[in-house]
Design a protein around this nucleic acid. Structure first.
Lengths: 112, 112
DNA sequence: TTGTTATTTCAATAATTGTTGTAATATTGA
DNA sequence: TCAATATTACAACAATTATTGAAATAACAA
């Protein structure tokens, strides 16, 4: 992941509404949710939700699949994972010990 | 970590310049860097850098210590780590197996 | 003291982002 | 077909954020 993509993803997540949407979709799992369900769950006007969904979709954090007159949205966990990896890598640069918070079990000399 | 704090942190990181600043400070380690060094490293006007440093400082991602006429900035790795934890927890909710991916390949050298 | 350096602050302005209301598009079902 | 539903698109406006130049503040050094 490159700097500009990471910044775009952070920017996408830098709104409470979009963070709510993403978390909701993560919890919805592979089924995802259609726009109306999201709007109901978060008590958002349809057009405002659409605005934020567009931002998340454009960033790639959610995917959308048409289903008749519905649009089903799903969280892109692979990209989120790549973002976590990027963040971890940047955070740890220079002083890995500070970021390897979960205590590592002693591995006998092999990788990492 | 709560939603609003996470959103504020993402928003702080949602700028290429601030991401550059933070990554630079992470790499600088516990010594941190004074503002002028950062400005030189990133080729930024002092006042614009000051603007972005204020944003990062206000979000808590960097700390600042006066040193005579210099201001020394340091990355707050503890907070970054908390953010990574938040992100991981939200990402994994419901389907942990998708987020327990193997560690990322290291990011290639400096990007610009 | 005076001048120089480091950094921040302020003002102006540009650019971007968020919200709301309204309208448009497309699908479904009677 | 017509009407209802789901969603998006557009326009207007408000609010926020970013950039630049100029000035202010504070510390250091001569």
């Amino acid at each position: 992941m490159q700097r500009d993509e990471a910044a775009a993803l952070f920017s996408s997540l830098g709104s409470g509404i979009r963070l709510d949407i993403f978390r909701l979709l993560v919890r919805a799992g592979t089924d995802g949710m259609v726009a109306g369900e999201i709007a109901t769950a978060l008590t958002l006007p349809a057009n405002n939700l659409s605005f934020h969904l567009k931002g998340l979709t454009h960033a790639g954090l959610v995917s959308v699949t048409p289903e008749g007159r519905y649009q089903r949205y799903r969280a892109n966990l692979a990209l989120m994972n790549a973002l976590v990896d990027y963040l971890t890598a940047e955070c740890c640069a220079g002083q890995p010990e500070l970021c390897l918070a979960p205590p590592a079990e002693p591995t006998a000399g092999s990788s990492n």
